[in-house]
Design a protein around this nucleic acid. Structure first.
Lengths: 209, 209
DNA sequence: GTCTATATAGAGATAGAC
DNA sequence: GTCTATCTCTATATAGAC
């Protein structure tokens, strides 16, 4: 499963894929470059050659997935704006489904969802600034779109509920649940169930009170 | 603010308080024992003397808060069972408010809420087993209580919604939001607002569809 | 119970040959 | 672009004096 088994990818790509999987499993600080390079079957010095530093490697792991996910979210959001009548469900699906798509992606997307959850927990200022600078506008777009669906909702309540949604989405997609679930369902239907449950849960939550 | 300023506490207590704050900020792997001992103003060897290992120190940081929080949750849950009519709001408050109380606690409880969020993101098997073994029964009690409030809800939907609640609670309490909020509210009302918003959001979510 | 000193290992980063 | 070798720093853990 590590990229060592796919030698047709460049050294740089192999490093990124292996780093993503290891960051998901051990965190950023808990993943050494030695572990990354040995699993990627490249030389230890290759990380610094291609990325300059461990911090830059972390940022590149994010950029590779977030650009695509943000594009997908904004595109679906545009479609949702065309929905007649009550658009809240469509807007929420536009936020949730690209994350679902990632977590169904064979090529490491599932690991990246866990990396995202790690990033939330990190107080690392450089990482937070990188994410906020590069992808904060996506959250702001959704904030605006939901506000248009729910004009009677106060700005504070809207922000809280967006936070609740982001937290629930990240946890559920990263499969951090502490209660055990039956293992007789395959990953695909598991994730699709999660997405539709979350859309229903969040839509009701946004419409509350 | 670090416990170095409170020398009336034992070495062991000072280590626990400082470790909690540093784990919240830098994570478990990102926090070295050297940083802990220097900020706690104790000798480097003291950690191994009092706790045996870094892993045991992590576990003790959890035990110190989780025992109390779990007791409070279960006690409030018992009270909620006495509520006439629709108990869902009371049950959810029993789950949410002890976390709120922690995050308002002056003596490091606020840091611990972030440590909890870290624990979710950790795939560390020892830590997950420790938490599941020692505190899993609390979640199971809440699962049962909510099922009693919502007998028409399928078991799968119940588990998903509990996951969404846990995720939303952890994120909101740990203040991980990426959208910026006004800073003109003090911490206490900020947290109380979070709790009441979350109770309303989650109650509507559980009642959905 | 607390200290110094150190054993042992592993980290990130870089220089310079190829 | 990739390698070996190594610098420098830091980590956890422990032994043994006080």
């Amino acid at each position: 499963m590590p990229a060592a088994a796919t030698p047709h990818f460049s050294t740089k790509e192999r490093i990124l894929s292996v780093a993503e999987a290891l960051f998901a499993e051990h965190g950023f600080a808990g993943t050494s470059l030695r572990l990354v390079t040995s699993q990627a079957d490249v030389n230890l010095a290759a990380v610094n050659y291609h990325f300059g530093s461990k911090d830059n490697l972390v940022a590149e792991v994010f950029r590779r997935r977030m650009d695509e996910m943000s594009r997908a979210r904004l595109e679906l959001l545009e479609s949702a704006r065309l929905v007649e009548g009550d658009r809240l469900d469509a807007v929420l699906r536009a936020f949730i489904e690209p994350a679902l798509a990632l977590s169904l992606d064979r090529d490491g997307g599932a690991a990246f969802v866990r990396v995202l959850a790690r990033a939330y927990a990190e107080r690392n200022d450089r990482l937070r600034k990188f994410l906020s600078d590069n992808y904060g506008h996506v959250l702001r777009e959704f904030s605006r779109a939901i506000a248009e669906c729910m004009p009677q909702l106060s700005k504070e309540a809207l922000y809280w509920r967006l936070d609740f949604l982001a937290g629930a989405l990240t946890y559920a997609m990263a499969d951090f649940g502490l209660l055990r679930r039956g293992d007789n369902t395959d990953e695909k239907s598991h994730c699709e169930r999660a997405a539709s449950e979350l859309v229903a849960f969040a839509a009701a939550g946004f419409r509350a009170g």
